[in-house]
């Protein structure tokens, strides 16, 4: 019995995980979400921006991370459009192009924002560091046209935006180490304020930059997305999925405890 428990068939674990995901999805419950300081800081920064100021939203992720990062992007866009803050969208990650474009259009339609006036989506350009450095001099030199082919200089919203001097904040939504490139090249070189939204696996990487103030705020994984949804009072997928994640985390902890008890009892018996 103990041996069976210690070396439990992994298919049983898979079935338990599947149930821990499916059941809370079918019967959603609402757990209280507490707001972390880095998330609150980002929300406050955008909330205090005057109308018609501009932020840059960077979709540095692909489909594999959309479950965590799309809810953040949506929540930030909703806040910006509600506050009349202009949004310059772009990506340094080729597969982020279609996702970023679709997502901005979706939220713009919901909030009645107009392409070219309230937001622009510039698309993708290769050469991560070079794109970040180049935009410090002139955004229109890097992105001659937006994603839809309109010359950047002809976009009404871009008339008063030349480089980072007119961008209040860069928010990098990233599933890799691109946030560090933004910090190195945009923050250090041009003193650009940076905030980030990252997947759960790279949260710990970001804390040194939070402590130095090189990141003014941080949305951490799906938990951060749920916190942001709570702050903008628009509960969506972030809130649903953090409740699902709660059950999966609980299941893993219970499995680990059971595994350890079985392991120690077995070791005792062997002695």
């Amino acid at each position: 019995m103990l041996t069976k428990l210690v070396s439990m068939d992994r298919r049983i674990v898979f079935i338990l995980v599947a149930l821990a995901v499916i059941i809370p999805m079918l019967f959603p419950i609402s757990l209280p979400v507490s707001i972390s300081e880095p998330t609150q800081n980002l929300y406050d920064f955008i909330d205090e921006l005057p109308a018609d100021s501009a932020v840059m939203l960077v979709f540095d992720y692909g489909p594999s991370s959309l479950a965590e990062l799309n809810p953040m992007a949506k929540a930030i866009l909703k806040q910006c459009f509600d506050k009349d803050v202009k949004v310059v969208g772009l990506t340094l990650y080729a597969v982020g192009t279609t996702m970023g474009s679709d997502l901005m259009q979706e939220i713009a339609e919901e909030k009645g924002a107009v392409n070219g006036e309230d937001y622009v989506f510039l698309g993708y350009r290769p050469g991560i560091e070079l794109v970040i450095l180049g935009m410090g001099t002139n955004i229109a030199e890097i992105y001659e046209t937006d994603f839809y082919g309109t010359p950047t200089t002809e976009l009404p919203m871009m008339e008063n935006i030349t480089n980072y001097d007119q961008i209040e904040l860069v928010i990098d939504l990233s599933s890799g180490n691109l946030t560090e490139a933004w910090i190195t090249f945009a923050n250090v070189q041009f003193n650009q304020q940076i905030a980030a939204g990252v997947t759960g696996v790279i949260i710990s990487q970001m804390y040194p930059y939070l402590q130095t103030g090189q990141l003014i705020g941080l949305i951490s994984g799906i938990a951060g997305a749920a916190e942001y949804e709570k702050l903008i009072q628009s509960h969506a997928k972030g809130t649903l999925w953090i409740n699902v994640e709660s059950f999966v985390h609980l299941l893993i902890i219970i499995l680990v405890i059971i595994g350890n008890i079985a392991f120690f009892v077995q070791r005792k018996q062997e002695e």
Binding site: P32, S34, A223, A226, S246
Partner: peptide, 13 residues
């Protein structure tokens, strides 16, 4: 275990 619990609302609950 602490980080996993602290990262989801059920931990505080």
């Amino acid at each position: 275990v602490i980080v996993m619990l602290g990262n989801v609302p059920v931990g505080d609950l």
